[in-house]
Nucleic acid binder design. Structure first.
Lengths: 378, 378
DNA sequence: TCCACTTCCTTCGATGTCGAAGATAAAGGG
DNA sequence: CCCTTTATCTTCGACATCGAAGGAAGTGGA
């Protein structure tokens, strides 16, 4: 079952406020939405009749009458979201508050091309829906992250380096043909940033780094994902100063990614005679206090930090959140922090927090849910 | 005479659309505002009765009935704006469309402290108002740019390096005490960026560089000035790679400003035996094809360009506009462009325009007008 | 010249939103 | 226990906005 969400006008805003947990009573909605209490009551009544909201007991008093607690009806609908990687896809179903109902990981070779990959994805969605969601609960939207740049205007993948066969493929149109619903297609680092943003309430400007096999980055500006022309957020192909000279996959010399990514560290460790397969192996080595590994992670952190100095001075974020598998190596974030604090303007670092990402492994899925909810409630 | 603008609700949006020249008929307003044509007519009627708009003949037909042209009444009001520099202030009066009525430059030592400087400014405003504006035309807002960081929450100057005595001074409160009106206080580079943005219609993401004695930068993100926590836009204290080592006024080594600013070039030329007083002198030397000067400007441009590569990849702007007195030296922008195009991701430079600033010497005043208009019409 | 067509603008009834006032329901204090 | 205070929620008249319909004023073609 699939169905566009039947909301209009102010109802969407109200539903969003309840969905995100920002408000849970009519009075709270009135405060946050800017609408008059009377209008809120009317719209809430409609939403309850439409089966999207339910009243659920009463909340805690703030000194006067207890509010009647509102929450999303579990039958209001679900969102199907995914995050495509090179060799596997992480996918799940979320309720309309963006909370995961199911999450699973399936093997999935993105190199097999868009049709095969997206059909595999859709089949997995349908299976999960059949297994986990009563037929009466409708699907309200579909979204996926892809490991490449997405043109925000057309929702096509553009000049992706790691997605052979995907260039200029109309991902959104293909999904919409199967699900006649709001569809979201977004770069994976951007999704992660959007997901991470929900874990930092009150912070309007975030940089979110994903340090894993590669290095990705997304930016939240004034509370909204910054897309630029579709290529925003790249920091991996910035030139770093170095004695040696390394050629990056992008064709340039001395890109950050060629020095500080998980892949680069694995290669460097191999040169030093230490055999590691995955990025998680580096983290293990660091935890075992293998000096080569620790030193290399530290150098990588410093290099990332040096690139960040430019961006922190310019963008002046509230938070730099560091995620990705390599972020589990403690020295990484420490050395990023050291480099940034040493070199940035005091004014820019005064209230800056450089911290591990909070949203966990499902950050991208949560971000997809967050962005998709906006589309669903538009 | 001073007076808050008596607009409410949708009237502000409509007035702004006419003021900025975006629309000049009821039909155009309906298209751009999203309001129904009927609502537009009602509000316009009110604005005309309030003396803020006037009907002025008819416009050109687009195939049907000719529109009745609307424009701002010249009696609707004026804005008083200024841009404070270290040794002089540029100030002027704008009409509500943001167009300058008078602009002049007065000597003004910012080091004499906030009270003296702001009083001098206010006196100049009052004089201009008395000389150039009929008493029946009210002042609607006051704004000024300052050469230092401004906390966007409090409109105080924070830790300014070139404004002794100004730290934490409540500039806005001081101005509001004299003019009980909407007041704007903003960093000068940010004002310039806001002004430049009006010269690039349709472009939502801009970086605006001001290369003069120092190096300043402002960013327009999704059409709005990016302030961050008040320190956003700095690029001058980014470390550049260099054989030598120079200490910058900020205490760090090898800041961009210590190599590529007008002041740095003047010092370098002096070392090379060429005596220059002002930044404009460098431009003259370049125009006279003095090899040392041209070479130095080219190197400065390349260094600025190298810093920009990081920001262009990350921020992915539509336009990098280069202004400031040194931008008149042709090789500067050429070498910036070369460095950026050579090193940035193709996707980021595909539609990127790196061009001289268009807004001219009054950019900051125009920007103040643009931002102030938003405050006046809030 | 006439007429179809486009665009501009206004009129009018339906609907959404607002704010004030009041009803409801609890907390806290004598 | 009653009364005051505080907060929540609803009722109701005033006002803003909308969309449909139509009048006004042009264009362009037969």
């Amino acid at each position: 079952m699939k169905q566009r969400l039947p909301v209009q006008g102010a109802q969407g805003d109200l539903l969003r406020l309840v969905a995100t947990g920002a408000a849970e009573s009519r009075a709270g909605l009135a405060r946050l939405s800017g609408l008059a209490a009377s209008s809120v009551s009317l719209r809430v009544e409609e939403l309850i009749e439409a089966g999207l909201l339910v009243e659920e007991g009463s909340g805690t008093s703030r000194g006067g009458r207890r509010p009647r607690r509102l929450c999303l009806s579990p039958t209001a609908g679900v969102l199907a979201v995914a995050d495509l990687g090179a060799h596997h896809a992480r996918l799940g179903l979320l309720d309309l508050s963006g909370a995961p109902l199911v999450v699973e990981e399936v093997p999935c070779e993105i190199a097999e091309g868009p049709e095969a990959t997206l059909d595999l994805l859709s089949d997995a969605f349908d299976r999960l829906l059949a297994e986990r969601v009563p037929p009466s609960v409708p699907l309200r939207g579909v979204g996926t992250g892809v490991p490449g740049p997405v043109d925000p205007a057309t929702l096509r993948v553009v000049t992706p380096s790691r997605m052979p066969g995907w260039n200029d493929f109309p991902v959104a149109d293909h999904l919409r043909a199967r699900y006649d619903l709001p569809v979201l297609v977004e770069n994976d680092a951007n999704l992660m940033a959007a997901g991470e943003a929900r874990s930092w309430p009150g912070r309007e400007n975030l940089m979110v780094l994903k340090v894993g096999t590669g290095i990705g980055c997304g930016a939240i500006v004034d509370g909204r994902l910054h897309r630029g022309r579709g290529a925003a957020g790249d920091i991996s192909h910035v030139r770093v100063s170095s004695d040696s000279s390394v050629i990056c996959a992008c064709g340039h010399h001395d890109c950050l990614e060629a020095y500080a990514s998980g892949a680069a560290l694995i290669a460097a460790l191999a040169d030093a005679g230490v055999e590691v397969r995955h990025t998680s192996g580096i983290v293990d080595l660091v935890n075992d206090a293998v000096p080569e590994a620790t030193s290399m992670v530290r150098t990588a952190g410093r290099r990332i930090g040096e690139v960040l100095t430019v961006l922190v001075n310019f963008f002046n974020p509230d938070v730099v959140a560091v995620g990705g598998s390599l972020s589990a190596a403690e020295p990484l974030i420490t050395s990023i922090r050291a480099a940034v604090y040493e070199r940035c303007l005091p004014l820019a670092t005064r209230d800056l927090e450089i911290a591990p990402a909070r949203a966990g492994r499902d950050a991208a899925l949560l971000g997809a849910g967050s962005l998709l909810l906006d589309a669903v409630l538009a």
